[in-house]
Simulated scan of single mutants.
Amino acid sequence: MVIQLRIEKFIYKRVKGIYDSVSLLDATTLQRTQVTTDMATLKSEVERFAKGKKLEIEALKIRESYRKEFLGNVSHELKTPLFTVQGYILTLLDGAMKDKTLRKKYLNRAMKGVDRLIYIVKDLDMITKLEAGDLHLDKENFLISELIHSVYELLEMKAAKKNITLLYDFDSNTDVMVCGDKERLQQVLTNLVVNSIKYGEKDGTTEITVEDFINNKILVRVTDNGEGIKQENIPRLFERFFRVDKSGNRKEGGSGLGLSIVKHILEAHEEKIYVESEFGVGSEFSFTLEKLEEVTEVDPLITEMT
């Protein structure tokens, strides 16, 4: 028995030494513990360590896959306007510059390509700042109706091109005072309404509804009767450059970063965003905001806009 115990202790020490050597990054292994000959305990610790490292490796593989996809998407988004600008400039240098009509036409098209590049770079810069926590929020108190009014005024012409009716409805007859960075929250609402119009049906509707939520919060809903989103695409909607349309069609414009920016701005405000959609029926994006107080008057100019 003595020999058996000494052999078990000897084996345990050797295995424990190997385990400690490969698990230096595990915080629990840095604590000094009394050596025991309980092989079952050591086995469970090794299994726990191996399981943890396997999960870490799988997470790193997923991140690497996302990194490659992200770099590919950035390259694709940037090369299209770059090649467009390059093509028009080369055409001008090859002799088209002498024709005043072509010169103005091609310079205008090249400028549009440059504008798109600037748009993408600005969105990427904002995403980087939001993820790093470097974007400062200038919070202020304002009426939610003012925010919706500004967004609808900005987008009414875009909606009119598809004959989409912009509607605004409160759950009650009161306006709501909220606190946040008005400019950033306007960007949130603008991005959501733009997507609603972009993927909405012609002669359809886009409606914003404000209603009471839990814990002194309000819920702002943006609902449309457009083409909707397939359920398998919903979990990836807020990824950078992810597009539901796999055809790569860019005729609607945009940087592919809109929903990702929406998510990060709301997270910076410590708020949540939700998505509900049925393919072929329509979609609803909603987000929370903290309610400060109620105002009894509602601006009648924004109850319905076309």
Rank of each mutant, 00 (worst) to 15 (best):
222 V>I: 04
55 L>S: 09
234 I>H: 02
195 N>W: 00
68 K>C: 06
198 K>R: 14
8 E>C: 08
287 F>L: 07
243 R>Y: 03
116 R>Y: 12
64 E>T: 09
255 S>Y: 01
251 K>E: 15
96 A>I: 07
197 I>V: 10
104 K>Y: 10
232 E>T: 08
193 V>T: 10
46 V>H: 04
163 N>M: 11
275 V>C: 12
145 S>Y: 05
6 R>A: 04
104 K>N: 11
120 I>Y: 01
299 D>S: 07
279 F>R: 02
89 I>C: 08
154 L>T: 05
292 L>C: 05
132 A>W: 02
141 N>I: 10
306 T>R: 15
20 D>E: 11
177 M>I: 07
256 G>T: 02
87 G>M: 04
301 L>P: 02
79 K>M: 10
16 K>R: 11
146 E>W: 00
92 L>V: 08
130 L>N: 12
44 S>F: 00
45 E>Q: 11
113 G>C: 11
262 V>P: 03
157 M>A: 14
248 G>T: 00
22 V>Q: 04
245 D>F: 05
187 Q>A: 00
107 L>H: 00
140 E>W: 06
106 Y>R: 01
145 S>H: 08
255 S>I: 04
74 V>C: 10
242 F>K: 03
40 A>F: 12
257 L>Q: 02
80 T>P: 01
190 T>W: 03
243 R>W: 01
211 E>F: 05
